[in-house]
Design a protein around this nucleic acid. Structure first.
Lengths: 247, 247
DNA sequence: CCAAAAGTGTTGACAATACACCCATGA
DNA sequence: TCATGGGTGTATTGTCAACACTTTTGG
């Protein structure tokens, strides 16, 4: 709520809650899904890998705090942080999730295209940030393994019924690259002709770039370039195969 | 995060955050969707209607707090509160959403079957709780109108691809009642034969009750009774009509 | 000319719609 | 016997998955 405070409530009467944000930021690189992690420099869990995040300041919203902490902790370029697709995942509030004090954490999921330079680049904390294949992210601090799993599941589900996949692609991309995003996130193969038809048949999902074509990586026919379109939802959905549903 | 605390962080150094929960609890009654509201008995917004909710206590998770506050503030029977379908909506953290202090609120969506007695019944605060048709919920306190709108949208969307609709029904229900839930929440009409086939064709959505049939309300052929099944997701989805999609 | 990747066409299975129709009950 | 709501059948229409095929490039 807000407003249901007991009469005469004194903000300082209780042991205070700390409110933090945690970020599960994903990218697709080399056919594998990666998550951005930082190495903890202090107790508890010193030396462990953890999701980036930090305290929400008194005059910040959680989303503002998320972008600020991401920039501070990982050294991602400002432009990337400002542009990245960020959405709330859920809030984790179990009383003992942090051994030191009561911490309620608002978790976010972030999506970025594959970056030429990894995470490092800025100074300071940035040196402790790394892209890690999600399969190799073991032994995370706190309940971050749970958050990571929840975030991963959510991204997979959202690809089915939203246009989110373009957030993993550079500003201009080929349909082959877009398909690779789906195949990587779902860890499944998709029929190219059908994928292509479905994407092009969804108004506003992608729009063709008038300019020239680009080669894929040397061999093969050059592919047409597309930009993300204005649409956000995908009707009808693009269902992942094999998920128990023969359909 | 949790753990990214600045070195030497003192829990009492900052102006503390209050962490609260807000609940948008819905039911379907008489062909209209209703939300459970309470009348505020103190400033700010004294006399306004608001979503039930309250402070998270030091040793509680947000979900525990949500059920406790719901029971305390609305007088819903314990059994109903324990059984109700509750899920996190999202967290609202804009700095000025409460004029008195910094309040971060974890919002939940709840679904209950139509109850014989309205909300009142218990004593205390319960007298100030009421079921209000969602269309008539105007002038809510704080940002509760936003939370309500977000919750309503989410429920409508979730009916499409989950088995959530049974949470609006009593333990045993007819397919006509289930269909009425969809029609009410979506404010759309659904073809009965097709609806029926789709529900029955989805394994685990509903299971037939071996016993006898029940009359609908007097007239008409008695309908078979069903119970919620073990399934939670709906593949393929049951898309609402007219939502911009000819399909 | 071959491999590799982009892009097009076609077909058959299946799903969704729309609607006609029968059944059981209360008044 | 009529109105009301439950339940079944079916034809048309469309969509989707599968796969064969053409096109354009690099080596």
């Amino acid at each position: 709520m807000s407003g249901g405070a007991p009469q005469g409530y004194d903000p300082y009467a209780f042991e205070p809650f700390a409110v933090t944000v945690d970020l599960a930021v994903f990218t697709v690189r080399g056919g594998r899904m990666h998550v951005l992690l930082i190495r903890r420099g202090q107790e508890p869990y010193e030396g462990s890998w953890a999701l980036p995040g930090g305290f929400v300041l008194p005059r910040e919203s959680a989303e503002t705090a998320a972008r600020r902490e991401l920039a501070e902790e990982t050294g991602l370029p400002e432009a990337v942080v400002a542009a990245l697709h960020l959405e709330q995942l859920r809030t984790y509030s179990e009383p003992d999730r942090d051994p030191r004090m009561r911490v309620v954490s608002v978790a976010f999921t972030g999506l970025v295209p594959d970056l030429p330079e990894p995470a490092a680049g800025g100074g300071g904390d940035a040196a402790h940030a790394r892209w890690v294949p999600v399969g190799e992210a073991a032994g995370l601090a706190f309940d971050h393994a749970v958050i990571l799993a929840d975030a991963r599941e959510r991204v997979g589900a959202k690809l089915e019924y939203t246009c989110l996949a373009t957030a993993f692609c550079p500003p201009e991309f080929t349909l082959g690259e877009l398909q690779a995003v789906y195949e990587t996130v779902w860890d499944a193969t998709v029929d190219r002709p059908n994928f292509r038809r479905k994407v092009l048949a969804t108004p506003g999902f992608v729009e063709a770039v008038p300019g020239a074509a680009r080669l894929t990586g040397g061999r093969g026919k050059p592919a047409a370039l597309y930009r993300p379109g204005p649409a956000t939802t995908l009707h009808p959905p693009l269902l992942r195969p094999s998920e128990g549903h023969p359909r």
